[in-house]
């Protein structure tokens, strides 16, 4: 096998570097997808979370070899969707974005919750976001924004 072939934000790509490289570093440095933030490199903050085959995953804890044959979505590949627009609108209404560093990961965590559970309870939202540390908001605004998106986004998810 030569390169690592995967789908990135809808496009087929081939990565020629080492299979042991971190997905996080490759997304940021090789593909210049800067929405993916580095908060700890230990899987403890969620700032680097991406969707792999629609499943929320911390990209700091993924080696490139593991993404071969899979599909990765970052906020760059999600921000044009109607689902994103709904989430963004609801986050905006509650001013849920403060410093913004956790937000791309938080948005993908929200998508991951709603894509399997379009009508989550507050507890389910809190659990779904529990790997994404936000130091600014105290979480209430973010949790409520996701609940509002679920409520008003009927049919989107």
């Amino acid at each position: 096998m030569n390169g690592i072939n995967f789908k990135l934000n809808g496009k087929d790509v081939c990565y020629e570097g080492a299979a042991t490289e971190r997905l996080l570093d490759v997304l940021r440095d090789d593909y210049e997808l800067k929405s993916v933030k580095c908060g700890c490199k230990e899987g403890e903050c969620g700032a680097c979370a991406v969707l792999i085959d629609g499943v929320l995953t911390n990209s700091c804890c993924v080696a490139m070899g593991a993404v071969d044959g899979h599909e990765i979505v970052t906020v760059e590949g999600y921000r044009e969707t109607a689902r994103f627009a709904k989430l963004s609108e609801k986050f905006a209404e509650l001013s849920a974005v403060q410093c913004g560093f956790c937000i791309p990961g938080m948005i993908l965590a929200a998508e991951a919750i709603l894509s399997v559970n379009p009508h989550p309870t507050e507890d389910e939202v809190r659990e779904g976001l529990s790997g994404n540390i936000c130091r600014c908001t105290g979480y209430n605004a973010i949790v409520n924004a996701v609940l509002n998106a679920a409520k008003e986004g009927d049919g989107l998810w």
């Binding site: 906020v75 921000r79 963004s88």
Partner: peptide
Amino acid sequence: KKDHDPKIEGRSVY
């Protein structure tokens, strides 16, 4: 918020 869109869209440059 003025910085809502660039931040949530991942366009803000840290």
